[in-house]
Design a protein around this nucleic acid. Structure first.
Lengths: 169, 169
DNA sequence: TGATGATTGACAGTATACTTACAATATGGG
DNA sequence: CCCATATTGTAAGTATACTGTCAATCATCA
């Protein structure tokens, strides 16, 4: 008769989805930083640049919803991007609390130039798998992230980005 | 004739594997912490406890290889586990540089009791997928993490854990 | 209008996750 | 045996990633 409780071994860790997601995140960041070393941008800083490019004049709170990134941490990210002169922060006339975010010329150039490196990094992450498996994994991941959106502390709110347009138009 | 470069949109972020791995890591940690809130343990602290349980008397450097965790960061993790009296750190007699790690009684009890909560968390992470898809995703993830092992800055070296046994035997 | 409650950015605190550097100690070759 | 080299734990520095809290400001409704 088998015992009721599983023995505690490293396999309990190695085969757990949580461990695998942590490992893949480590690996993904490592590959990204390596491929993009010439630009001195982290994955999050890159995502922020893309979002500000797509939604010029967005504020920090909405930006955090658009890239599913904590509002507090984002403050530091914005600071670093500003100190690198890739973005600008201007106070809003309509709402004295908010600071509007825009890419600088330098920011737009960096974003344009980094794209091919980012693409290379994304390809490398899945490279070891067979092409069909890459597609399967990506599809399942997109599905899972979407269905688990509310489970994270900072759910993605892509539509939030459009709100700042409605104000003045 | 279509333009050569892809336009920069948020979709370039949302469909990138790097972004999806980051999101899943956020979600996985969030679920883990929620399910295990009664134990006040983070995923990494849990993994460290399991490894020390499996390899009593392991040292910090080998532990970092076994859970694929940076040696420097691990110092802080060990400190926190020690201050919670879940592990002990004793100097080795054979090598004055090394500090050997052991679970305390309290650590062993916490580890035994947290297992069912951890299991529940792992199940919840994949819950939204159909059972067959869960299996597929897990299999592909294990494959990818294994094949990408060397791409991360701190590759997993599971076999390193056995070395400390060979010394005294 | 005027009080109430929500939003915004900022700050402090905790915990990963990495980098480089360093002193103490071990180890192996000449 | 001695010296170059490697290992170990630690520390400082940077960057996520979250938790709170707070003051300033805004928006709403009695």
């Amino acid at each position: 008769m088998p015992s009721k409780s599983t023995p505690i071994t490293m396999d309990a860790v190695y085969t757990a989805p949580g461990y695998l997601f942590r490992r893949m995140q480590q690996i993904a960041v490592s590959i990204f930083v390596e491929e993009c070393s010439a630009f001195d941008l982290t994955p999050v800083q890159y995502a922020a640049l893309v979002a500000i490019h797509t939604h010029p004049g967005i504020d920090a709170t909405r930006l955090s919803a658009v890239i599913a990134f904590d509002r507090s941490t984002l403050g530091n990210v914005i600071e670093r991007l500003e100190s690198k002169a890739l973005i600008e922060r201007k106070p809003s006339r309509e709402d004295k609390r908010v600071k509007l975010l825009h890419l600088t010329k330098a920011g737009a150039i960096v974003l344009r130039d980094i794209m091919s490196s980012v693409e290379r990094a994304q390809v490398r992450m899945l490279q070891p798998l067979k092409p069909a498996d890459r597609k399967t994994l990506l599809a399942l991941l997109m599905q899972l992230v979407d269905l688990n959106n509310e489970a994270s502390r900072v759910p993605l709110r892509a539509e939030d980005a459009l709100e700042h347009l409605g104000k003045s138009n």
